[in-house]
Simulated scan of single mutants.
Amino acid sequence: MTELLVGLIIGIFIMFIVVNINKTKKKRSLKLVQEAVPTELACRIPEGLPIISRLEDSLNSEYMEKVKKRVLANHPNWTETDFNWRLFELKRYFLLAGILKSVPMFSDEVDEIWHEMIMFTKEYENFSKKFFGSFLHHSPNVERTPIPHERALFDWMYLHLFEIYPNSTKLWGGFLKNPLSKTFLEEVRSASDEKLFDKYFRSFDPIKPLQTKLLEQLKNDIEKAEEMKRQNKSLRKKIKTDDTYSMLLPAMVFLSLYEQDSYTEKMSQLLNKDAGTSGGSVYACGAALSDSNDHSGGSGCSSSGCSSSNCGSSCGGGCGSS
């Protein structure tokens, strides 16, 4: 009788695990918008275009066809468009990995394409060396520990570099939930470019102009935040924009520097749930942003949007070349 009871309990426990695993799989199934991916990774910054060409040239077409075939065989419910969007976002990730020394992978969906690329070991090694000049290692984050600053830095870089689409938001789980590290921002404000490049940026000559441009932009955002602090400006000007995220990035820096404890609360006020979609209304720094009916001057500042972000990652801070 006792053995029967124990067996029953074990059976129920196993069923519980199986049911929850199936629920988890269902939660991870994304329904993407079935539209063609943009050209040139929809990069905003001209300095990025030569690097994107280098990236595309490094991805052998025969190699990527094999990856695609393997991925679609493992995911029979995916369309070619589903694959193409995940690959599109992985290419964006690779560009970021060429800029910074450490870039965590924050999307399980995008990471699936990376995993399959690595299965073709020789082709993947050839790609890494041709594009990065060295092997790009994939280091899984077994503990799935949140790394808020690294996610915030990823978002800041990503949103300065690229146009945002509904599928981008879905695949990365949203943007700008986490503040940048105040210590990091103060270091960027005070340290020499040489020191910052040595500590944070990948040594990669072809991408140096783009790295320089992004560092200048980050310093500019810090200056805007400082000016806003000096003038005691409000974060309450309502605007309408087709590009909510990029308009709000300087105030992401402001809140990270001066109001970090209330960052999440302030972000939820500054950015509505439709962030990144056309015509969304947001609240941003009063003197920094103006709509078409307001041509007043003032220092530029805006705020990071708060859209929910899955900080779950299959790859932690170790993603990068060793």
Rank of each mutant, 00 (worst) to 15 (best):
K68F: 05
I52F: 01
K31Y: 07
L49Q: 01
P50N: 00
I45T: 02
L32A: 08
L49A: 08
E47Q: 03
K66G: 15
G48N: 03
E56M: 06
I45Y: 05
E56C: 01
T39S: 14
V33F: 13
P46G: 02
L49G: 02
A36N: 10
V71F: 05
K66I: 09
V33G: 08
C43G: 08
K69I: 08
A42R: 04
E35Y: 05
E47A: 09
E56R: 06
K68T: 12
K66W: 14
L30T: 02
C43E: 09
L30Q: 12
E56S: 01
L72M: 12
P46Y: 01
I45V: 08
S58H: 06
A36L: 14
R44V: 00
L30K: 03
P38E: 09
V33D: 15
E47V: 03
V71G: 06
R54L: 07
P46V: 08
L55S: 04
K31N: 05
P38N: 11
R44M: 03
P46K: 11
P38K: 13
A42F: 09
R44G: 02
Q34W: 05
E65R: 06
A36R: 07
V67M: 06
K31A: 07
G48H: 03
L59S: 02
S58N: 11
L55I: 02
E62R: 14
I52G: 01
I52A: 03
I51C: 07
L30E: 10
I52D: 00
A42Y: 07
E62Q: 13
P50I: 02
I51Y: 00
S61A: 10
C43Q: 08
E47L: 01
S53F: 05
P50D: 00
I51W: 00
R54D: 12
L72Y: 10
E56P: 00
N60A: 09
E62P: 08
L41I: 06
I45K: 11
I51E: 11
E35Q: 15
V71R: 08
M64W: 11
L59C: 02
V37C: 07
T39C: 10
S61G: 10
L72I: 06
E40P: 09
V37T: 15
Y63N: 13
I52M: 00
S61Q: 14
L72W: 04
A42D: 11
R54H: 10
E65T: 05
E35R: 14
G48A: 04
P50C: 00
I45W: 06
L55D: 01
E56L: 09
L41A: 00
I51P: 03
E35N: 15
K31E: 15
I45P: 00
Q34P: 13
C43Y: 04
A42S: 13
E35M: 08
V71T: 04
R70Q: 13
V71D: 12
L55E: 02
Y63P: 11
V71E: 10
G48P: 01
S61M: 07
R44D: 02
P46C: 00
K69F: 08
K66Q: 15
V67R: 09
